[in-house]
Design a protein around this nucleic acid. Structure first.
Length: 424
RNA sequence: GGAAAGUUGGCUGAGUGGUCGAUAGCGGCGGUCUUGAAAACCGUUGACCUUCACGGGUCCGGGGGUUCGAAUCCCUCACUUUCCGCCA
């Protein structure tokens, strides 16, 4: 959520920036919010006045009773009758206006950073880096879903039987490869100063609202109806909510957390080649990194996080590119996002394996994560997060890119975790 | 699943209808003492809305009610803890 005072002070800038995000009717929506807020202020003043008068009378009555002046006190009581009536009217108007403001603010996305390019969709994203060599595969190279079947390491049909599409069963070396990647990612995180946490996989409604999954993305989550819990779509939700309603110490910046979790996404509306094999799953494994920092340093921290994510891919020997998402493709809550995509050589496709974002104070405003600045003033923190990394597509690329006539070669860095160097 | 007790400021914990935004301790900040630190002592220390300011208002888990007046009484919801039952 944007801060109302910021909108008031920077109306033109806000409207201009919202247009970069292709937000419709920016001018109208923003003008309306300010008008509503003016109304709120006026109403509050009247309400405060009425309450002030009542408080005064109540005190007088208290004094009169103590002095034993009963009749005078009773007379005073009459004075409050009219005040109570108008209090009711103003209070109703107040909550009505506040509700309208809240709804309007929730509908406004975060403002994009100055560096966010204009654009409508993914075709307009800016490629900022290309790292590694695109592997040249043999003529008979096959996509990962064939390799999974050939070596019997990931069984999609079995998952279909047990649950449904998008819930594969990992077997033997496939399962071990999963464990190896998780351990590798977590230990690399620890090396770079991230404290490991293991969060709940279900969250309550409040947590889902705080990080922005509700109300807009409700259809993407699995819901435990009996208890009204939501299966997490990413560890970002529980890990960021660790800090909900807290005042953190600026001495602790940057606060860095990493967490492995399974993630659950309904992925309503997906179809075709996008969902083949490991490309898009309903349940998948991911190590997430979450940071909290001051507004002054959050963009520095974003670079630090990018370096961490890139380092993981370097070590795995996967070719990748980094995209700066354009206004049309960047998420509702993000100010600046870099996507990391690995090249999956048999599919000849780029697959997104990480998304690293700075949310500035947008999430923090809903979460109420604050710190005291040098002057002792309360300030909202900046929150950031990124995948480091999501497993399935990393596995897809590893299988495809490393296939040889003898089998699939396990990257050097993973061997101490897998205990084998080839899948055959 | 059954029963009981709770939810107060950064933390612990008083307060059961009127100078209570709230006693006290811890912690934090400032100071005295000290070469420095610790200890001791003194002072200070909640958030939010509104206002140029003075000031006014809100907040004692959430919501509603009673009352001239609610942290305090009533209703309701949520959560926590303890005991019993069940159990990885």
């Amino acid at each position: 959520m944007l801060q109302l005072n910021y909108i008031r002070d920077n109306k033109e800038l806000v409207i201009r920036k919202l247009q970069v995000k292709n937000f419709k009717n920016a001018e109208e929506v923003i003008t309306n919010i300010i008008t509503l807020d003016d109304e709120r202020k006026a109403t509050q003043k009247e309400l405060d006045d009425v309450k002030g008068k009542q408080n005064l009378i109540a005190k007088e009555i208290g004094g009169l009773f103590r002095e034993g002046k009963k009749e005078e006190a009773e007379a005073k009581k009459q004075e409050t009758v009219a005040l109570k009536e108008s209090e009711k009217v103003f209070a109703e108007k107040m909550s009505e206006v506040e509700q309208k403001i809240r709804e309007a603010l929730l509908s406004v996305p975060n403002l994009p950073h100055d560096s966010v390019p204009l654009g409508k969709g993914e075709e307009d994203n800016e490629v900022v880096a290309m790292v590694g060599e695109i592997p040249q595969l043999a003529e008979d190279a096959v996509p990962h879903w064939d390799l999974c079947a050939k070596y019997d390491i990931i069984d999609f049909n079995l998952g279909n039987k047990i649950t449904g599409a998008g819930f594969p069963v990992y077997k033997g070396k496939g399962a071990k490869l999963q464990r190896a990647l998780i351990n590798f990612f977590l230990e690399e995180g620890e090396k770079d100063g991230y404290l490991e946490v293991q969060p709940p996989l279900m969250v309550n409604e409040q947590s889902a609202i705080a990080t922005g999954q509700l109300p807009d993305k409700e259809a993407q989550m699995y819901v435990v109806t009996l208890d009204k819990f939501y299966m997490i779509p990413t560890a970002e939700v529980p890990v960021t909510n660790i800090f909900r309603d807290t005042i953190v110490d600026k001495k602790d910046f940057p606060i860095q957390r990493c967490a492995y979790s399974q993630c659950f996404r309904r992925e309503a509306g997906s179809y075709g080649k996008d969902v083949r094999g490991l490309n898009r799953l309903h349940q998948f494994d991911k190590v997430e990194i979450v940071c909290i920092d001051s507004p002054e340093h959050s963009y520095e921290q974003l670079e630090v996080m990018k370096k961490h994510v890139g380092g993981l891919l370097d070590k795995l020997g996967l070719p990748y590119r980094i995209l700066r998402l354009c206004g049309g493709d960047i998420s509702f809550t993000s100010a600046l996002t870099f996507d990391f995509e690995v090249y999956s050589a048999a599919q000849q496709r780029w697959l997104e394996v990480s998304s690293v974002s700075n949310f500035e104070s947008y999430q923090a405003n809903r979460l109420k994560v604050r710190y005291k600045d040098e002057n002792g003033k309360m300030q909202l923190c900046h929150t950031l997060n990124g995948s480091a990394l999501a497993l399935p597509r990393v596995v897809a690329a590893l299988l495809e890119n490393n296939q040889t006539p003898e089998g699939i070669v396990v990257p050097e860095v993973l061997r101490k975790y897998t205990g084998f160097d080839i899948i055959n």
